[in-house]
């Protein structure tokens, strides 16, 4: 299991690197799709079919939106030589990444081995949820019953985002 997930994640990393370095924006957007659809396969391997269904549809719609943005523009990324400021920014970024990776190596000693971990709440949910909520799908039971506030907040965030999109796009620009 671990080997399979590592291989797929490696492919996702390659896709991400290509997406970041591609010259044509359209191919960058499509390479971003590799990462999303790889995640779908990972979810299926990790026994999360709910997430796989949501991710495959959401990724398709994200691709549609990004292509709609890219298609009516000039599509090419204008590459120019890095000036001093750019060089300093890149160097700072690399230092930040190295420091973060060091912290991750320290923190990873606290992580359980893949497949052996068990959170404290998990057992309570698994044993009690089906009887308490009457729902066979435990994820739905937890989403709408034990964690109902999360879902309500999510719905409100979605409405707010839609309001934001409408406000930004319907604004008549200054002449």
């Amino acid at each position: 299991m671990e080997v399979a997930i590592s291989i797929i994640t490696g492919l996702m990393i390659l896709g991400a690197l290509f997406a970041i370095h591609a010259k044509d924006l359209l191919s960058a957007v499509i390479a971003c799709g590799i990462v999303g659809y790889g995640l779908v396969i990972c979810f299926l391997l990790l026994k999360a079919p709910d997430l796989a269904i949501v991710q495959i549809v959401v990724d398709t719609i994200t691709l549609i939106m990004m292509v709609a943005v890219v298609l009516d523009s000039s599509r090419e990324e204008s590459f120019s030589r890095l000036d001093t400021f750019g060089k300093i920014a890149a160097a700072t970024g690399l230092i930040i990444i190295v420091v973060l990776f060091y912290f991750f190596i320290i923190a990873s000693s606290n992580l359980d081995v893949l497949g052996k971990s068990s959170l404290r709440m998990a057992n309570a949910y698994i044993h009690g949820a089906a009887q308490k909520t009457g729902s066979a799908n435990l994820v739905t039971g937890v989403v709408f019953d034990f964690r109902g506030y999360d879902t309500m907040g999510e719905a409100v965030v979605l409405v707010t985002a839609v309001l934001g999109v409408l406000t930004i796009l319907r604004l008549k620009g200054k002449k």
Binding site: P49, D50, I53, V57, V58, I61, S135, A136
Partner: peptide, 17 residues
């Protein structure tokens, strides 16, 4: 949604699709 994988989020995005 409460019997098989899926639910409001997945089905809603499929309908929108």
């Amino acid at each position: 949604g409460h019997l098989t994988p899926g639910g409001g989020f997945a089905g809603g995005v499929i309908m929108a699709g």
